[in-house]
């Protein structure tokens, strides 16, 4: 049986976190944007497979950065 690996555990995959609806709403109001103005991520993206994210959810991506502790990025889940 092939060993299954969690893609999230790989060091080169940045951490993906699911935001709650309230957090997402706060994000939208912080930047004064509508969901259509957000960067997108496919619902089928392997990195968010285990998050049970639905279309319209917001994912926080924490990337490594040479110049900052964590480079924070947000993406909205998009139907594919």
């Amino acid at each position: 049986m092939p060993k299954t690996i969690k893609i999230q555990d790989h060091i080169l995959v940045p951490k993906h976190v699911l935001l709650t609806k309230e957090e997402a709403q706060a994000l939208f109001s912080k930047y004064n944007i509508t969901p259509s103005q957000m960067p997108m991520i496919s619902a089928k993206d392997p990195a968010i497979k285990e998050l049970n994210a639905e279309v319209g959810d917001v994912i926080k991506v924490l990337r490594n950065s040479q110049t900052e502790k964590d480079a924070v990025f947000f993406r909205i889940v998009k139907a594919d």
Binding site: Y31, T67, F73, F74
Partner: peptide, 27 residues
């Protein structure tokens, strides 16, 4: 942001550094 005000980066360069005032992109 782009022309329709859609977000491309939440912080310029993901670290917010103004490169014109940095040294080679770093502080």
């Amino acid at each position: 942001r782009n022309a329709r005000k859609g977000i491309v980066q939440f912080k310029y360069g993901d670290d917010g550094i103004d490169v014109s005032k940095s040294e080679g992109g770093k502080i």
